[in-house]
Write a protein that binds this DNA or RNA. Structure first.
Length: 429
DNA sequence: ACAGATGATTATTG
DNA sequence: CAATAATCATCTGT
């Protein structure tokens, strides 16, 4: 080190009071070119800086020592601490407050619900299964796919936990490190315990924000997994033929009021080996789709109507099936009668059934026969046409009326005119 | 590969 | 909360 100094030194020897002879030594041979001079300039500055640093360090050390040994030092230090404490307190008073982040709460709740954040293996998968069952009525055949799902979920959980642990560890390490540092410094500069506390809380906040990111991405992963494996739409199976038959049979034999009660739904569910909510779905879909395009379902309706007609009773309208199955005009008539007319026509029967009869089975029986009959009548398309047309036939009739929902309600639905007596007279007035 | 059928979900409403 | 209407995502027949 010392033997290099002569080369770095500038000829002017700025401030090198301690080594007067070295500058002279440099002069021979090196003072020629400009570039060489600049280099020496830089080198000189560097050297100065180094020396100054050295000196300052020593000096500082010395001063520190002197200060520490000063007899007034403890008292002054205490005063300093006190002042600092006060200022810190005032600052903290303004910026305390740490409301639990709602976002974080949401994430936590979700992770807990998914079984990621909760207890280990057993509880987790149970929670996941519960969640899966809650979303949609999945009853029987999904055990194979489920295990796959569980495996992936536990994988996610494992990653999540290791990451979380890592973060926790790092946070703790960092915190103790900082605390040690501060404690050590507190000997030479005033650091109140509250300040340390604040520092720690800052660190914790930082780390918890990182944790939140982890939780967020974990949530995302779980959501994707869920949508992949548990969204029933992705692995939908059509019901088997028999189940569809049963459902259709019920639907078309209760066409005037295709709203199975809870018990009826359970019964159907049992018969079709599907869940009640699936039955509800089916009826919901069926109703809306039937209403939307009655013509399309004509054939089907006739089929089931005829079938129940044969099996239930031998009312046997002559030549009910004689018509060709796909008559273009049948759609129109069916549409008109299905909604408003049918309701009107059979209102009496319905109210009768609802009011005077107590036996539910008898009522249902009558109802079903009525529904069946209605179809047969519509198919024949004979006499009822005039009645239907006169009453209130319009394409909007269905839409405005809405369909089934208010059909079962007794008394006048369509018009504010008189009841069962006269039907049509005042319309053209 | 495609259109239509179909079971399920979502948003809205009363 | 159940019904409806719209929509999604898959299944199915061609």
């Amino acid at each position: 080190m010392m033997d290099e100094q002569p080369r770095l030194m500038h000829s002017h020897g700025v401030g090198m009071a301690g080594h007067p002879g070295l500058a002279q030594h440099m002069q021979d041979g090196t003072a020629g070119t400009d570039g060489e001079g600049r280099k020496q300039d830089i080198g000189d500055i560097l050297q100065q800086i180094m020396t100054i640093t050295d000196q300052s360090l020593d000096e500082a050390q010395a001063r520190k020592h002197a200060l520490n040994c000063h007899r007034m030092k403890p008292a002054l230090f205490n005063v300093l601490c006190e002042i600092k404490e006060k200022t810190v307190l005032s600052i903290r008073g303004a910026q305390e407050e740490e409301p639990p982040d709602p976002q974080l709460m949401r994430l936590d709740n979700m992770l807990l619900a998914e079984g990621v954040a909760g207890p280990e293996k057993g509880g987790g998968s149970a929670a996941a299964a519960a969640a899966a069952a809650a979303t949609g009525g999945i009853g029987a055949d999904n055990s194979a796919e489920h295990s796959d799902y569980r495996a992936k979920l536990s994988q996610i959980r494992q990653i999540y936990h290791t990451e979380l642990e890592k973060y926790e560890q790092a946070c703790n390490e960092f915190t103790t490190h900082v605390m040690n540092l501060l404690r050590e410094q507190s000997r030479t500069r005033p650091i109140s315990p509250k300040e340390i506390e604040r520092m720690v809380s800052i660190i914790h906040r930082k780390f918890s924000s990182i944790q939140m990111q982890l939780k967020q991405s974990t949530c995302e992963a779980v959501m994707i997994l869920r949508s992949r494996f548990l969204d029933a739409r992705r692995k939908r199976r059509n019901f088997n033929k028999q189940a569809t038959e049963i459902l259709n049979e019920y639907f078309y034999s209760h066409l005037s009021n295709p709203y199975p009660s809870e018990e009826a739904k359970e019964e159907l569910a049992k018969k079709c080996s599907i869940t009640v909510s699936q039955v509800s779905n089916w009826f919901g879909n069926k109703r809306i789709r039937y209403k939307k395009n009655i013509g399309k379902f004509q054939e089907e309706a006739n089929m089931y109507a005829a079938r129940t007609a044969v099996s239930a009773t031998s009312v046997s309208a002559h030549g009910s099936q004689a018509n060709s199955p796909s008559t273009p005009n049948s759609a129109g008539s069916a549409g008109s009668f299905n909604m408003s007319n049918s309701g009107d026509l059979f209102m009496s029967v319905q109210s009768l059934n609802g009011d005077s009869y107590q036996g539910g089975q008898v009522g249902a029986n009558i109802q079903s026969q009525v529904d069946t009959l209605r179809h047969v009548i519509s198919q024949t398309g004979g006499y009822s046409d005039s009645l239907a047309a006169s009453q209130m036939y319009s394409p909007q009739g269905i839409n405005t009326n809405g369909g089934w929902q208010d059909a079962p309600t007794p008394s006048s639905v369509t018009s504010p005119t008189e009841g069962p007596g006269s039907v049509h007279s005042d319309t053209s007035n």
